[in-house]
Design a protein around this nucleic acid. Sequence first.
DNA 1: CGGTGTTGCCAACGCTTGTTGACAAACAAC
DNA 2: GTTGTTTGTCAACAAGCGTTGGCAACACCG
Lengths: 197, 197
Amino acid sequence: MAFTQRSEPARAAILAAARRRFASDGYERTTIRSVASDAGVDPSMVMRYYQNKEGLFSAAVDIDLHLPDVTGVPREEIAGLLARHFVKRWEGELADEAITVLLRSAITNPAAAERMRTVFGQQVLGLVRMVTGDTPDSAMRAGLISTQVLGIALTRYILQLPPVVALDPETLIELFTPVLDGFLTGPLAAATVARSS
Amino acid sequence: MAFTQRSEPARAAILAAARRRFASDGYERTTIRSVASDAGVDPSMVMRYYQNKEGLFSAAVDIDLHLPDVTGVPREEIAGLLARHFVKRWEGELADEAITVLLRSAITNPAAAERMRTVFGQQVLGLVRMVTGDTPDSAMRAGLISTQVLGIALTRYILQLPPVVALDPETLIELFTPVLDGFLTGPLAAATVARSS
DNA sequence: CGGTGTTGCCAACGCTTGTTGACAAACAAC
DNA sequence: GTTGTTTGTCAACAAGCGTTGGCAACACCG
């Protein structure tokens, strides 16, 4: 019942295959059999190492945004840094599929959605607090930033809207920096948030 | 093989149930059996009226953004009008579930993703052209707007990030109007779009 | 009234899914 | 070298899926 180092290659192969499948197919369409096949392994091995499909998913989606430390960075440069961070993280041949896995799965799988709320709630909020201090506005600012960041991820990597895909990374960064800056440090609306449930 | 008016209530009930299911569960998790059960109808009836699951989906997702006509509206008011339009359209008890259906399904279903590209490409682009004229930038501006609009829909209605859900509609409109305005009429990045595939 | 086509219900098909258990091979420990 | 545990293979299960065809009840048209 305990796993040795001998089976680690198999477990790693399974995990890698699972991440690829969850990223491209989402939770429901990803089958244990297909993951096992991709990993060159018997389906029952997947069960033995990850208990069930939900366990496999949890292991595959254990993710971190790796937001940069912005202490000491001048306030007016932070938004640009943030924009660059996200774009760079998600681009490239060997790109980190984390966001795709998480986003694609979070749409239909409640557990993934919950994790998404946690990840963006805590990690982005933490960064905002580094900038604004612990004001009551922080959560709202973090939410607004998430809105734009996830909007890009959705339209560029998942839906692949042509004009959004066509933007080269530097242009993308340049275009969204002012928006993020506005959400991060700019004035908020006159109306206050009535009730937060 | 032709359907009479007598079966119209049944067909309408099926369609309504399908829209609700596709909206809340996505394409894969929605089963013909559950739709039939919701509609108080036998599963085979669903097949008879919509051929197969794909046909049912196509019928359920035949959607229009109903973007307002902005001819004659002063340029500086258009962004606000647009923000208000989307928010109002997606709020409320008897809200139009169109965006949820489409978004949730487009994540895993290629046909839905294609429709999404068409809807946002053509309809938003059309509106942008009413404002800017037929400049080469129009498609890019439409894409940027889609980015923010869909980002809101995703975080507020699908992922339900708490700080985004907490915003009341008027505040939401107020906050996003300047962003949309920037994308719609503001200057674009210095870098030009290299190649559009 | 009789005939024709539409509607609705029922049972079943073939298939895929997640999951389980049995059993042989490979390894590790003493 | 024997014992015990871990790894891998194979076959099968129960459940759920989309889908199909048959058949009774009904409505309409002559």
